[in-house]
Write a protein that binds this DNA or RNA. Structure first.
Lengths: 330, 330
DNA sequence: CAGGAGTTCTGAAACGTTTAGCGAATCGTT
DNA sequence: AACGATTCGCTAAACGTTTCAGAACTCCTG
């Protein structure tokens, strides 16, 4: 493996000079610079990022921890993060937590070992963990979820408004028995969407009794919950994330319920299949790519501006994309 | 940031001893070991992976380069890679190439700078690149694609057989004008699936004239190609990957063609939405998770066994999952 | 009891960078 | 011609580990 010394030798200069041209950290006369650059190319030299990081204490690496990359929900987000990271010379490490505390734990430990500069989290973790990371010099930003008292930066979507809009749309279609297939998980998102749902019905003067079903996130639970909900004969349902939509779709088919005739549906999250499903499903589309990009930008900003800036909350806009499952003409 | 010296001081031993307990690299008497371990815990010490990597020349890091993580096709694969990597103490860096040569180039350059131990590639790259990586000490394995003359390890699926089976299924339904919406891209997969298609029709004694349309991979191109193909009135089509399936579905709807009545459909790749689409689509399901896991195992093996083992090809099995788009009763 | 054989631990060099501080060369001024 | 300023490059120390060679001990053995 060729080192800076090899380059220096070939160019007939000292390693310090090579370093100077590499980093533009000091003036180097044009001829020397040229010789150095030529040497670098001819040896196909790639500076050792480990040595560099060891010395400078900057690794130009961030990590992104999702619960399971297989959730199509995440992919746009991941891409957004990767794009802006790369644009700024950062590399991203990807991890799956399955929301399991011990996995998260282990994961974060290896990240501090690797001296990663910051972490983007897609779900809440114990506050103590965040503080431990901070003490180790890592920055953390949440995306999609918002920690209770905003003890760290977060990038989210206007969940309550968006949910409110979705349910209002259902009500505007004349539906009165509007149910929600929501989820709990200690995630702010789930709660907020429920709030939006309640608010919309309240405003419409409708009392949704017994039509609130909260599920766990796994698809099997969701299907069980969907059966539970559909058994109560709602004439519309708001499914609070993509898994819940899938659950409703499958269960409705199973029960022979026609959508939207028997039961209208509005979902949350606009993953690819929503448009090819039958019927195509009306859903609140979160700007996933932007969410990821904004999170990465937020993290990099904080890395640049230094540790002690107060927490910043970025709220992006989620819009309803109307298709047919709500009863509209596609 | 606490270092090994701090630990050593607190435990009253030398750094070498701490290192020994950390790595189990030498015998350390139980009492000393205990003192060291206690010190480690009480200081919340995390060995600096940079320093360690600098010294040992092992970073325990691999990279996974996909063209675009947003393709749902990849997510299972990514998860497979991440799981086995982590299981063996490796961290994975994720990159998106968009198949753009300059991006690939830059990407690989940063990987060698970071002294990543190996790379998993989901698309072919110029052979010279692979060889350059090798010279820098990186191992590379391909997954999903197979380099022409197997100049590197690869993990793939039995594409021709699988395609053959898919088309045979269509023929068994009595379809005769069976078209293929394939793709070119220098990828072995596309070619192989075309071969399987041709073989099946040949065996059935059917001459598919003018029903072969090859598209580029982007969805817009695919839709254009789909229109082209459907205009020629096939009574069945084999769509060679998930993008092509989506294109056919949308275009058929656009043209008012009923699936499977007017035109049966069998796809390739079993992404989530295939089962909720209307009709649910019959498709060749690749074991994506296993593909990724096998690729990672292959890479780690090679890392362990040393550079000069001959190239190994791993072929996994893809099965047809029958739903309704082919004409079967769901 | 001398000296060899094991044990268990330590000192110090090395990994490949960056960077402070120093020194040599050049230059303009007087 | 002598002298500071200025420019440009170099020396060497540090970053936090691992690891080799060997030091200090203990324990036998003859």
């Amino acid at each position: 493996m060729v080192t800076i010394k090899d380059v220096a030798r070939l160019a007939g200069v000292s390693p310090a000079t090579v370093s100077a041209v590499l980093n533009n950290s000091a003036f180097v006369s044009p001829p020397l610079r040229q010789r150095v650059e030529r040497a670098i190319r001819s040896l196909n030299y790639h500076p050792n990022a480990l040595a560099r990081g060891l010395k400078t204490r900057r690794t130009h690496t961030i990590a992104l921890l999702v619960s399971d990359i297989r959730n199509p929900f995440y992919t746009g987000l991941v891409r957004g993060v990767e794009d802006v990271a790369r644009e700024h010379g950062y590399t991203v490490i990807l991890g799956n937590s399955d929301r399991r505390p011990e996995k998260i734990q282990r994961y974060l430990a290896t990240l501090v070992g690797r001296r990663v500069e910051g972490v983007i989290l897609t779900h809440v973790v114990p506050r103590s963990h965040v503080e431990a990371l901070r003490r180790q010099g890592l920055q953390v930003v949440f995306v999609d979820v918002r920690p209770r008292d905003l003890y760290a930066d977060a990038v989210v979507v206007n969940n309550v408004e968006a949910a409110w809009g979705a349910v209002r749309h259902l009500v505007a279609h004349g539906r009165r028995r509007v149910g929600i297939l929501g989820f709990r998980s200690g995630l702010s998102t789930g709660d907020e969407r429920l709030v939006g749902y309640r608010r919309a019905l309240e405003e419409a003067g409708v009392q949704p009794t017994g039509l609130v079903v909260l599920s766990r996130l796994a698809l099997e639970h969701a299907q069980e919950a969907a059966r539970e909900l559909l058994r109560r004969r709602p004439d519309a349902v708001f499914a609070a994330n993509n898994t819940m939509v899938l659950a409703i779709l499958r269960t409705a088919r199973e029960l022979g319920l026609r959508i939207p005739e028997d039961c209208a549906l509005v979902g949350f999250d606009d993953v690819e299949w929503m448009s090819v499903a039958e019927p195509p499903v009306t859903t609140v589309a979160q700007p996933m790519y932007e969410l990821g990009a904004a999170a990465a930008r937020c993290l990099l900003d904080r890395l640049r501006e230094g540790r002690d800036r107060e927490s910043r909350l970025t709220v992006l806009h989620a819009d309803l994309v109307v298709r047919r499952s709500c009863g509209c003409e596609g």
